[in-house]
Amino acid sequence: MDFGLVLLLLGGFLLGGAWSIWRSDDDEKGRTGPQVVFAVILLVAALLASASGLLRLV
């Protein structure tokens, strides 16, 4: 298996995690600060992993 493909899969996994954290808000309080920060960190990591995987495949 090519390393670029592994990075693309990791990016997709991290993107799913970011989406899952973003969706899990409380009905009354909404999203908390740490929840937003963690979702943004996962989103940035997913974008970096996906971009590096694409560049590795090209």
Rank of each mutant, 00 (worst) to 15 (best):
G53C: 04
D26V: 02
L10P: 05
S24P: 01
V6L: 09
R23K: 09
V6C: 02
R23M: 12
P34D: 01
S20E: 09
G30L: 08
F38K: 14
I41A: 15
D27T: 09
G33N: 06
V58Q: 05
D2A: 12
G17I: 03
V44Y: 03
L42V: 05
R23A: 11
L10A: 15
L43N: 02
L55R: 07
G16K: 08
A51F: 13
G16T: 01
A18G: 10
L10Y: 06
G33M: 08
G53S: 00
A45F: 12
S20K: 11
F3W: 02
I21D: 14
V44C: 08
I21L: 15
V44D: 00
Q35P: 06
A18V: 00
A49W: 01
V36D: 07
R56V: 09
L10F: 12
K29H: 06
A18S: 14
L42A: 11
R23S: 11
L9W: 06
A45N: 07
G4M: 01
A18Y: 03
L14P: 03
V37I: 15
I41V: 15
G30K: 02
V40S: 13
A39Y: 12
G11S: 07
W22K: 12
L5I: 03
D25L: 12
M1I: 02
A45L: 15
D27K: 13
G4A: 01
I21G: 06
A49Q: 03
L47D: 01
R56H: 10
T32C: 06
A39Q: 00
P34H: 03
L15D: 05
G17L: 15
G30E: 00
S24L: 09
G16H: 04
L42H: 03
D25K: 15
P34L: 14
G53T: 00
D26Q: 07
K29M: 06
S50V: 03
A39M: 02
L54S: 07
S50F: 11
L54M: 08
G53A: 02
Q35Y: 09
G53I: 06
L5T: 05
L15F: 14
D25W: 09
V40A: 14
W22A: 15
F13V: 14
G16P: 00
D25F: 13
L10H: 09
V37W: 14
F3Y: 05
L43Y: 05
A45Y: 01
W22T: 13
P34M: 04
W22H: 12
